[in-house]
């Protein structure tokens, strides 16, 4: 490894000032275009963090740790039961990815809903802020629209990767009138966090 570092430093030493500036500017360009893409995605999807990483196993077998979720958060799209939402509770730094279990929508459009992790046996009331029974729209970071698993991390479980995906189903009812694991999600580019 020491050899590599030396080679690299030699390269830098051989450059003249112009080349050095060019390298620095080039690096700046890469960082700023990454930031632009991220911000652009935020505008297009309407979500404050369009791509999140699943950090825990409470949505297994749908999402495992490390899987990527693509989120949108369009205002006009109503939240419905069965959807997977990412929400951020006041006082909790890390957003949570769970499925919507109940929703109650009022005449004036305000929505209250309750979530539950597929792998948890009880709903999320224990995870919400103390005394909070329902989530509201302002706490939603986004709804999961796209998904990609990360193949690298699964070397140990390789043999079950192919069978673990399936489908989750639920029965909706529409009327017109403990210790839990919580699936936490984090923003990918730490650059965009500031």
């Amino acid at each position: 490894m020491g050899m590599l570092d030396m080679d690299f430093l030699d390269d830098v030493r051989r450059m003249n000032k112009r080349q050095l500036y060019y390298q620095v500017l080039n690096f700046g360009m890469i960082v700023s275009s990454a930031l632009m893409i991220w911000k652009g995605l935020m505008v297009v999807t309407g979500s404050e963090s369009p791509i999140v990483v699943v950090l825990s196993g409470s949505m297994e077998p749908a999402f495992y740790r490390g899987d990527l979720l693509f989120l949108t958060n369009y205002r006009e799209e109503p939240i419905r039961v069965g959807e997977i939402v990412v929400f951020k509770i006041e006082g909790r730094e890390i957003p949570i990815v769970h499925r919507v279990l109940k929703i109650h929508e009022k005449e004036n459009g305000t929505v209250r809903f309750l979530t539950k992790g597929d792998n948890n046996s009880v709903d999320d009331r224990g995870l919400y802020a103390p005394g909070q029974l329902w989530l509201e729209k302002k706490e939603v970071v986004g709804r999961a629209r796209g998904f990609s698993e990360i193949p690298i991390k699964k070397t140990k479980k390789r043999h079950i990767v192919n069978v673990r995906r399936g489908c989750n189903m639920w029965v909706n009812v529409i009327t017109p009138t403990s210790r839990q694991r919580n699936a936490e999600a984090t923003l990918i580019p730490t650059v965009a966090r500031t």
């Binding site: 929508e105 399936g166 189903m169 017109p176």
Partner: peptide, 30 residues
């Protein structure tokens, strides 16, 4: 466990509730 405000969710336009769910993995009987 819940609060006493009965009309907490009053004048509802739409309720959706999950009453049953199941996870089917790939390869299982669907």
């Amino acid at each position: 466990s819940a609060g006493r405000e009965k009309n907490d969710l009053g004048f509802i336009k739409l309720n959706q509730v999950v009453v049953w769910d199941k996870i089917i993995r790939r390869g299982e009987n669907s």
